[in-house]
């Protein structure tokens, strides 16, 4: 049984990870490289002269971008392991798990791991002013876990108490608030920061839809294989 979890998560995570890695290189990386020109001081916002919004950016870097694709695959394999575990619990409670229903699970994963933390700690462009990273990580994990529990309660809860608790868990991290910087020192133009957050969330949604679909498909297929072998 353990192999069903590992195999379906590995296939789904690696396959989705390659596609997501390429999507990030095409849609997110140019915005990040643009921001780094301001982070490094090569470009200065509100300096003496107006700055072109279309500077020459560094091109494809095999080591840097190759590592990014590998780490994207690893990250989404990690997410896939969590997702198939949740899917198996859902199946035990009567949920149908396949590629098509997996899309819905993927959207839920996006809400839990991207949208919920990003609602207050928006995806950060390099150079942004931010509070201590350890404190932000604690808040990030707490918010993601609270959102996971909340979405589970929304989907599988049977009464208003469960749904009310879910709403509370979704709202609480943002009412409490995330660690914020004391002062704003970010040198990056707001246009780039906004585009970066939008791109990161957009690619994140595409990523999770793919991951959910693949995870559902491979979970069902591995189950059929196991049933035939038994």
């Amino acid at each position: 049984m353990t192999s069903r979890f590992l195999v379906s998560a590995l296939f789904a995570g690696a396959l989705a990870g390659v596609i997501i890695g390429l999507l990030q290189l095409v849609f997110v990386q140019p915005v990040l490289l643009h921001a780094e020109l301001y982070e490094s001081g090569e470009l200065v916002h509100f300096g003496a002269e107006a700055v072109s919004a279309h500077p020459a950016l560094p091109g494809f870097d095999l080591m840097r971008d190759g590592l990014s694709v590998i780490f994207t695959m690893l990250t989404y394999t990690g997410y896939a392991l969590i997702l198939v575990a949740a899917m198996s619990f859902g199946e035990d409670r009567g949920a149908r798990i396949d590629g098509r229903w997996g899309i819905l699970w993927g959207v839920a994963g996006f809400v839990a791991f991207h949208l919920a933390p990003g609602f207050t700690l928006a995806p950060e462009v390099p150079g942004v002013a931010a509070a201590d990273v350890a404190l932000r990580q604690v808040w990030w994990f707490a918010t993601a876990i609270a959102a996971c529990v909340a979405l589970w309660l929304l989907a599988f809860g049977q009464n208003w108490a469960a749904w009310g608790a879910a709403a509370l868990l979704l709202a609480a991290p943002h009412l409490i608030g995330a660690p914020e910087p004391e002062t704003f020192t970010g040198p990056v133009p707001t246009e780039i920061g906004a585009l970066f957050a939008a791109r990161a969330l957009g690619v994140g949604l595409a990523a999770w839809v793919l991951l959910g679909c693949f995870a559902g498909y491979f979970w069902q297929r591995e189950g059929e294989h196991a049933a035939q072998a038994a």
Partner: peptide
Amino acid sequence: DAAHDVRHATGFPCH
């Protein structure tokens, strides 16, 4: 350093 771009693009707190 290796995961830097992915951490930003995936919305993790990075620095």
